[in-house]
């Protein structure tokens, strides 16, 4: 299990690095899916099977497909590679990288003192569901409202201008 965790962790980090340096957007998306699946494996190793399933189905599945649709609609991909390359050519990445490095160093410093091991037992769907519809029921309702709002606004934003005249 430990081996699985570290393996998945390495895969996730490498895939993520590939996401942020890729010039081909479709390839980047594939790497992102890979990264998300690796994280799903990590979830499983940490004893969270429900989260692992949701990560694979909703994140790597549904949301990434949404990205794919948009990329197809905008007809991005091969023909934008040159442009991406030009955009990435400058020195613009140094400062953000530096900043992120500092942030990472800080995180490492803060987290280095954390003691404790992950629990050996799995927290199953039952436990999660019971709590979700117990004390967290209000949060669930709010999440549903958020999704509804997202749905409506996405519909409104994405339609063609002037469509409301019809």
């Amino acid at each position: 299990m430990m081996l699985l965790f570290y393996l998945a962790a390495v895969v996730a980090v490498i895939a993520t690095v590939c996401v942020i340096v890729q010039t081909n957007i479709v390839h980047a998306l594939i790497y992102l899916i890979l990264s998300l699946l690796a994280v799903a494996v990590i979830f499983y190793t940490l004893g969270a099977p429900l989260a692992a399933m949701l990560e694979a189905i909703v994140y790597a599945g549904a949301i990434m497909v949404l990205f794919l649709f948009v990329i197809m609609m905008l007809n991005l991909g091969q023909n934008t590679r040159e442009q991406e390359r030009a955009w990435l050519a400058g020195r613009g990445w140094i400062l953000p990288a530096l900043l992120a490095a500092v942030l990472l160093a800080q995180l490492l410093y803060v987290l280095s003192g954390v003691e404790g091991m992950s629990a050996p037992e799995q927290v199953g769907v039952m436990a999660v569901g019971a709590r979700l519809f117990g004390p967290y029921v209000l949060a669930v309702e709010l999440a549903s409202i958020l999704l509804l709002a997202g749905l409506i606004s996405a519909y409104h934003l994405a339609r063609k201008p002037g469509a409301e005249d019809e």
Partner: peptide
């Protein structure tokens, strides 16, 4: 199940977060 140190999991999250940033 082999127990995994919490520290490592959190550090992985930090690395991913920084990469996203």
């Amino acid at each position: 199940m082999g127990a995994i140190p919490v520290e490592h999991g959190l550090i992985l999250a930090g690395i991913l977060f920084s990469l996203g940033l």
